[in-house]
Write a protein that binds this DNA or RNA. Structure first.
Lengths: 97, 97
DNA sequence: CAGGATCCTACCGGATACTG
DNA sequence: CAGTATCCGGTAGGATCCTG
């Protein structure tokens, strides 16, 4: 369900609130439109993300986590915690060697 | 670091204690020897798992988590919790439809 | 028992160009 | 803006066989 290179990052980004397609592109460094599009479709299929087309001009699309998607928050949070600590350790290694 | 199809399962299995190669094969349904071998090597390279060759006959090899590997426990635990709940939801869907 | 060596295939993921 | 279409290479990962 979270397979692929970008899904975790996407969910992480959406956990801060609704976002439009372009905002996600800007927010997630390195992702290409095609990848974002494909990953979002899979996330929607799995019921983790809700897609809403806004009738603006030109049209914009909002993405947000569903309740189901938010249920992953504990996992994502733990990953964030670990990543932070991990980076600290790397820096410590660099400065001590 | 946790890339690949099996690393999470391997760490999960090792979180219950040391295990030999065959025990891991038996414990992780569906994994082939080659895959287990490759994933374990990567885990060892990343310092998450410690490999110990026991001079029995024939030789056996013990794998265990390092302290670093155990630092992932909160993440794995949260995943386990989520997976359990997820399965409950699936079953509920099946019985109500 | 614990694995390496080979072979093979699907699909992951990037670049680019195009559309309503 | 928010995608889709197309092309393409690399590699993840499975099956099978072999070895100390």
């Amino acid at each position: 369900m979270l397979s692929g290179k970008w899904k975790i990052r996407i969910i992480g980004s959406l956990s801060f609130g609704k976002k439009r397609f372009m905002e996600l592109i800007a927010n997630i460094e390195g992702i290409a439109a095609k990848m974002l599009s494909k990953e979002l479709q899979e996330l929607e299929l799995n019921g983790l993300v809700k897609r809403t087309v806004l009738e603006t001009k030109p049209i914009t699309v909002q993405y947000e986590l569903t309740g189901y998607g938010r249920s992953l928050k504990p996992i994502i949070d733990e990953m964030a915690v670990w990543g932070k600590q991990h980076r600290k350790n790397i820096i410590k290694e660099m400065t001590t060697s």
